[in-house]
Computed example of a mutant assay.
Amino acid sequence: MSDEVIVVDLGLQLAVVTAFIVLMVVVHSAGLVAISKVLHLHDDRAIPNEFGLRASFLMGTYGLLLFTLHFFEIYLFALFYRHVGALRSMEAALYYSASCYATLGSAPAHFDEEWRLLGSLEALIGFVLIGWSTAFMVGTLRKIIN
């Protein structure tokens, strides 16, 4: 990698953001469908109708699978940051991506400023996807209490 600064066009950044929005909607949709199938959430008989050990196990497993889905999405952003050279290590890329995704907003000292727009908009994407997961989980909880 040379020492010259490469200016990334705003249009390219917006195109990449758009591609990530589409990718994340597809990944998150597929993930939620997979979680539903694994936990048999489409079958009302598989969902307990009271809070107890079975409901606790279902919701705990649900939470772990959602966490895994969100981590995978964070990982996809981190892979991109490493691929374009915005960060020097995968650990730094994961830290930055998780920070953005969770709307913490802690930028590392050596982040390539050419891609900071994507990092900022990753926060919006993460916020929406976390909200989507929350709504999905609340729907399942409603089935348990009804």
Results as ranks from 00 to 15, higher is better:
residue 24 M to D: 08
residue 94 L to N: 13
residue 30 A to F: 05
residue 54 R to T: 08
residue 64 L to A: 12
residue 55 A to C: 05
residue 90 M to C: 13
residue 43 D to T: 01
residue 78 A to Q: 08
residue 78 A to V: 11
residue 21 I to Y: 03
residue 19 A to Y: 00
residue 47 I to D: 11
residue 84 V to H: 09
residue 89 S to W: 04
residue 36 S to I: 07
residue 64 L to R: 07
residue 48 P to A: 13
residue 88 R to E: 15
residue 41 L to C: 12
residue 42 H to W: 09
residue 76 L to K: 04
residue 39 L to P: 02
residue 25 V to K: 04
residue 17 V to Q: 10
residue 33 V to M: 10
residue 84 V to I: 10
residue 75 Y to F: 15
residue 43 D to S: 05
residue 20 F to L: 00
residue 24 M to R: 02
residue 23 L to T: 09
residue 66 L to H: 07
residue 60 G to Y: 05
residue 45 R to K: 03
residue 43 D to A: 02
residue 68 T to D: 03
residue 32 L to Y: 08
residue 15 A to Q: 14
residue 23 L to Q: 05
residue 27 V to K: 03
residue 62 Y to T: 03
residue 80 F to L: 07
residue 27 V to C: 06
residue 41 L to K: 00
residue 72 F to V: 09
residue 60 G to Q: 04
residue 65 L to W: 13
residue 56 S to Y: 06
residue 17 V to Y: 13
residue 92 A to G: 11
residue 65 L to A: 05
residue 67 F to M: 15
residue 82 R to M: 15
residue 26 V to N: 01
residue 71 F to L: 10
residue 44 D to R: 12
residue 40 H to G: 03
residue 31 G to F: 01
residue 93 A to H: 12
residue 20 F to I: 03
residue 75 Y to A: 01
residue 18 T to F: 14
residue 20 F to R: 01
residue 82 R to Q: 15
residue 14 L to V: 09
residue 78 A to T: 07
residue 16 V to Y: 07
residue 63 G to I: 08
residue 86 A to G: 09
residue 95 Y to M: 05
residue 31 G to A: 10
residue 15 A to I: 07
residue 82 R to S: 14
residue 87 L to E: 10
residue 53 L to V: 05
residue 22 V to I: 11
residue 85 G to M: 10
residue 81 Y to I: 06
residue 59 M to A: 00
residue 61 T to P: 06
residue 44 D to F: 01
residue 48 P to R: 11
residue 57 F to P: 01
residue 47 I to M: 13
residue 45 R to A: 10
residue 49 N to G: 15
residue 28 H to P: 05
residue 89 S to D: 11
residue 43 D to I: 02
residue 29 S to Y: 09
residue 32 L to V: 03
residue 85 G to Q: 03
residue 46 A to C: 14
residue 85 G to L: 11
residue 44 D to C: 03
residue 59 M to V: 11
residue 64 L to W: 08
residue 37 K to M: 04
residue 79 L to H: 14
residue 23 L to I: 01
residue 59 M to F: 13
residue 62 Y to C: 01
residue 40 H to I: 02
residue 76 L to T: 09
residue 32 L to E: 09
residue 75 Y to L: 13
residue 14 L to M: 08
residue 43 D to Q: 02
residue 38 V to N: 11
residue 40 H to R: 06
residue 53 L to H: 06
residue 16 V to R: 00
residue 28 H to D: 03
residue 86 A to E: 11
residue 27 V to G: 07
residue 29 S to E: 05
residue 30 A to D: 06
residue 57 F to D: 04
residue 74 I to G: 07
residue 88 R to Y: 12
residue 72 F to E: 03
residue 28 H to T: 02
residue 37 K to T: 01
residue 33 V to H: 08
residue 47 I to L: 08
